[in-house]
């Protein structure tokens, strides 16, 4: 076939001729043609081995039975096999033990990013700092309404939180409100304000915010003496909080501050364990059938909440 290449006048032509220029009929090199046929064969082999022909319901399955979702699941299984031992160990440890173990701490933080992103970041922001002025508490600072120890954080997640401050619009006159606003601002700056303090003590603020105005953990009331504002340090905003309260019933202008409950079951368990410790009983001997009904809501598992508590604790403000 290739023999005539060198003698163009002897090569057959295709019969096409333009201006005397003939189109010669020189075949492609054999190796090239073979490669072409081989690639054609490859297509056939691929069609037989892999899902290929679209039919009315789905497509042909192929001899290998390969699917994308199967491959994905296999890969996922590999990841889970790798995480398995850590997760098992994590489930057996208390949150305090995790904090003390650098390796497990690294694992807990590394594996909780998605968990936090899925469940918490919508309000609290990716790094534990919500958008300014959004009204959600910052998790990365050292100020905690309901306590910043690892167990308190766990309880906050498990049981959810909703502090309450009544609306004072009907209880105070505007002069009193002004004085209290000034008192709150002065407290944060560390400036004494005798008149404001007197009002603070007589008008009932002290009942929730404490004699030293540092807030009461059990109620989640705000600390006035530090530099962090639960909502805003702006004068107008402080006035709004005093007038309309927080989560106050019957006041449509009230501030809403509700942390949902993530595991009723875990909340009950933590409480029962704490009670047992206070009563000098062994928390491992609690009869859970007695404590739990079995129909408690559980949006996150105990291990997940433990991991999240560790994650939040490590934002930088954990105590």
């Amino acid at each position: 076939m290739a023999a005539n290449k060198k003698k163009p006048d002897q090569v057959t032509d295709t019969g096409h001729e333009w201006d005397g220029i003939r189109e010669l009929n020189n075949p492609c090199p054999r190796w090239w043609l073979n490669a072409l046929y081989l690639s054609g064969l490859l297509v056939v082999v691929y069609f037989v081995l892999y899902p290929s022909l679209p039919l009315v319901n789905g497509s042909t399955k192929g001899l290998l039975g390969w699917t994308q979702i199967k491959e994905y699941k296999e890969d996922l299984a590999k990841v889970e096999a790798r995480r398995g031992p850590f997760e098992k160990k994590l489930a057996m440890m208390t949150a305090e033990e995790i904090l003390a173990d650098q390796e497990m701490l690294n694992y807990a933080i590394g594996s909780s990013k998605v968990l936090f992103g899925d469940n918490c970041a919508a309000c609290h922001g990716m790094g534990g700092t919500p958008v300014e002025g959004a009204g959600y508490p910052v998790l990365a600072d050292d100020d905690w309404l309901f306590g910043g120890t690892i167990n308190e954080i766990m309880m906050s997640i498990a049981n959810g939180r909703a502090g309450m401050m009544p609306a004072h619009a009907d209880l105070l006159n505007s002069e009193e409100v002004d004085q209290l606003v000034q008192f709150v601002i002065d407290s944060s700056k560390g400036v004494k304000n005798e008149a404001g303090l007197a009002l603070y003590n007589t008008k009932g603020c002290v009942a929730c915010h404490g004699a030293d105005a540092k807030g009461v953990k059990a109620m989640g009331s705000a600390n006035f003496t530090d530099k962090i504002w639960r909502f805003s340090g702006d004068e107008e905003q402080i006035r709004h909080t005093i007038l309309h309260g927080v989560n106050a019933a019957n006041d449509p202008a009230t501030r809403i501050a509700v942390m949902p409950q993530w595991s009723e079951k875990l909340a009950i368990m933590i409480e029962a364990r704490q009670y047992a410790i206070e009563e000098d009983e062994d928390p491992n001997e609690i009869d859970w059938d007695d404590e739990l009904d079995g129909d408690e809501a559980e949006r996150l598992t105990e291990t997940e909440i433990k991991k999240l508590a560790v994650y939040v604790h490590q934002f930088g403000g954990g105590q």
């Binding site: 922001g125 990365a140 600072d141 050292d142 530099k227 962090i228």
Partner: peptide, 15 residues
């Protein structure tokens, strides 16, 4: 994220 955090004593913390 975040670049800095304000702490209760008014100091600034970076991570």
């Amino acid at each position: 994220q975040p670049l800095f955090v304000r702490l209760s004593d008014g100091s600034i913390q970076n991570k």
